[in-house]
Nucleic acid binder design. Sequence first.
DNA 1: ATAGGGTTAG
Length: 605
Amino acid sequence: MTSPLPPSRRATAMALAPRPSRALRPVPSPSAAAAALLASASPLPASRFLQLHAHLLRTGATPLAPAAASAFLSLAAASLPSSRALAVLRHHLTPASVPSTFSCNSILRSLSEPGALSFLRRMRGLGRRGNAFSLAIILKPCCTLAHARQLHANVVTDGHLRDALLATSLMRSYATCGAGDSAHKVFDEMLVKDAVAWNVLITCYARDKRTKDTLRLFDEMKGGESEARPDEVTCILLLQACTSLGALDFGEKVWEYAVEHGYGGELKVRNSLITMFTRCGCVEKAYQVFCETPRKSVVTWSAMISGFAANGFGEDAISAFEEMNKSGVAPDAQTFTGVLSACSHSGLVDEGFRFFDMMRCEYQMMPNVRHYGCIVDLMGRAGLLDEAYQLVVKEMKVAPDATIWRTLLGACRVHGHVDLGEKVIGHLIELKAQQAGDYVLLLNTYATVGDWVKVAEVRKLMKENGIQTTPGCTTVELNGELHEFIADDDSHPRKAEIYGKLDEINRHLRIAGYVPNVSSELHDLDSEGKECALTYHSEKLAIAFALLVMPQRRPIRLAKNLRVCVDCHNFTKVFSGVYNRLVIVRDRTRFHHFEGGQCSCNDYW
DNA sequence: ATAGGGTTAG
């Protein structure tokens, strides 16, 4: 009869079978036979190994002869948990019985990171330096800065800098402990810098949010003296950097390079490109790339769905989701994040709840914090504030994060729900996550119900605690140059023209029915004073400037560091109709496309 | 002789 297991499984089963008789047999010492026996032994259960160890000590078989010691220590490292193994190793490592480099490496492989490092130190102290393998083994899990530094020293003194893989591994270790500068130093020291080394360096910069340096590296890599040229991984990393910078022009240059060098068909590159376009507000370009991508993965679909969502095209996001289902690609958690955020950004309340149910029932997925965040937003829109609060504190299976509370706080402001707003800020404080913007939301909530006494209280509280609000700031990109505006800005060289233009725009918009929304102004001014303060918000100044300098028919692209305020939102909406201009505003979380007096996002205020 | 190590999509 043949065994039911395939040959490979049979071998594993045999290895797993206990072999007590051999392990407990008295070990003659010192003898080559003992070494051979130990060397051939597979890892033992810890208890059995300790029995063997005790037996050796009892029978006076120690100190072991060098060959036997090598084998015995390897067996110890393989059989015992790291700390336990280390104690045994310490006991048996003597100048007379340092295992061979090969054995040392197999011991290193069995130990966990701190143990391995201390063993390496010990063996080096006993004159066994180890080789590049030894360092590579420890570098793999190395994740503390002090350890990385020690290994770096070893790499240098042992002359392994020529080994590109080892050096890159060291860079990675530095990068994971947040020491980007040290990683850079290793890179500088490297004798041969290949593309992967460059890519790791780029990853370091990206991780440190040094996005502009990241872009610089691309040019350096293309034209530098180094042999390495950007590969598809480089393109991916750069497209990601462009995504976070909103650097559309640079992103397109990277794509051009990718196509020229034969990386244009790489799915990962295309997926990064789709994201880059959507996060620069170019949904059409993203969609074109998406359509021209033949074998779309769940990542491709999700990128497009989230891209539609972030730009306020909720219906398109939903149809993409349906099309995805038809094409047979299964959605995952991130796909649902995209769909749900599409519903929340576009105010599609019923659809949102439908997808939330679909996700849980049809796909048996556990919603995560982000999913709940969308649902809380939807419930806020539907005016179900107390229900949303109950959901967060009672029903959610995951711990609520600051974003969830902030979403709820935003809803409190819209609905003037002061009591809940106070509770929510309490939760934010409990999480030690309260930001200036949260106090502003609370303050807004009081302002909405006209409770100026409380407004003053919050203001005082903020002052006492030294909470600084971030000044609103809007940037316009013009021929690759960034023009920055803050409220009541008077630093721009063309300020007279800009203010003149803004006054003219204001007159035209009022005729068209624009009414300043004074609830956006936080100060307890009289209503005329409020109008004045609103008039020169940074976004309006930026629009006036853009109108002055940008040729007709080109979209006006703005980027804001805060959320668009209600009044500016209204203003821009009416502006896009009266002046017949497309205005694309990127704020902290999404894009607003203003066209023909409408906005793509269905924000509720 | 044997053994080992790096970057990457939503």
